[in-house]
Amino acid sequence: MLEVEVRYRTADRAGVISRLLALGAALAEDRTDVDQYFNAPARDLKESGEAFRLRRIGAANYFTYKGRRRDADTKTREEIEIPLGDGPAVAADATRMLAALGFRPVVLVRKARQVYTLTRGGFAMEVCFDDVERVGPFVELEILAPEEQYEPAKATLFQLAADLGLTEKESRSYLGMVLAAEGRE
């Protein structure tokens, strides 16, 4: 499955939310994500454009692998996410296991996230309003789509961005932005 995604900066969060609600979106979740990124023992994931993390959303834990980007216009990449057990003990055990296998922690990315859902162009979409520690507020538009639906999903995202008045696209990942903020690009 492909994660087809675009990210924007916006100074008008309230206006974007108002336009989003007028399009029929609903607030699905208000949460905090804590993402511990790791580098692999056998290759540099930053060099290859891949990412691997342990994500914590409340008590829930997930391993997520993100493949290389498909294009420069979006942040489209293969995404594989595996749910783990819940709780801090599971997260600690997962971190110890990765260390034992030679994975090295890179950086912790924390964000407050409001997730809105809607359907456009036949796609279930998420619109996420993120406040990322050390790098600021963003709006992410995302569709999970099979390979054969990549182009229509991409077009749907860009149309929604235009409808919401989003123009300041941000092509960097949160991982990359946090590393830059820490002077570790």
Rank of each mutant, 00 (worst) to 15 (best):
R70F: 03
R70M: 11
R70V: 14
R70N: 02
D71E: 12
D71H: 04
D71N: 12
D71F: 01
A72V: 12
D73A: 15
T74M: 12
T74S: 15
K75Y: 00
K75W: 00
K75R: 15
K75V: 00
R77V: 07
R77D: 03
R77K: 12
R77P: 05
R77Q: 11
E78D: 06
E79R: 05
E79T: 10
E79D: 12
E79I: 11
E81K: 08
E81R: 10
I82S: 01
I82T: 13
P83H: 08
L84H: 06
G85K: 08
D86R: 13
D86W: 01
D86A: 15
G87N: 07
G87M: 12
G87W: 06
P88G: 14
A89D: 14
V90W: 05
V90F: 07
V90N: 02
V90D: 05
A92F: 02
A92G: 09
A92K: 13
A92Q: 15
A92V: 04
D93W: 04
D93E: 15
D93L: 14
A94W: 05
A94D: 09
A94G: 06
T95R: 14
T95S: 15
R96D: 14
R96G: 05
R96L: 11
M97F: 13
L98D: 03
A99P: 01
A100H: 08
A100D: 06
A100V: 01
A100T: 10
L101Q: 11
L101T: 05
G102T: 11
F103D: 04
F103C: 04
F103V: 09
F103T: 07
R104Q: 06
P105D: 11
P105T: 12
P105A: 11
P105N: 10
P105F: 09
V107P: 03
V107T: 14
V107F: 02
V107A: 11
V107M: 06
L108A: 07
L108C: 06
L108H: 01
L108V: 15
L108D: 03
V109E: 11
V109M: 08
R110D: 01
R110G: 00
K111V: 09
K111W: 07
A112G: 01
A112N: 03
R113Y: 07
R113V: 13
R113K: 13
R113T: 10
Q114T: 12
Y116E: 08
Y116I: 02
T117D: 02
T117V: 15
T117L: 09
T117H: 09
L118K: 10
L118C: 08
L118F: 07
T119L: 00
T119I: 08
G121Y: 03
G121Q: 09
G122I: 10
G122W: 02
F123Y: 05
M125V: 03
M125H: 04
M125D: 04
E126L: 06
E126V: 01
E126F: 01
E126C: 05
V127R: 02
C128M: 05
C128W: 00
C128Q: 05
C128H: 04
C128E: 09
F129T: 12
D130K: 04
D131K: 10
D131A: 14
D131V: 12
D131N: 12
V132G: 03
V132C: 01
V132D: 06
E133P: 01
E133Q: 14
R134Y: 00
R134D: 08
R134E: 15
R134A: 13
V135R: 03
V135C: 08
V135Q: 06
G136W: 07
G136F: 05
G136C: 09
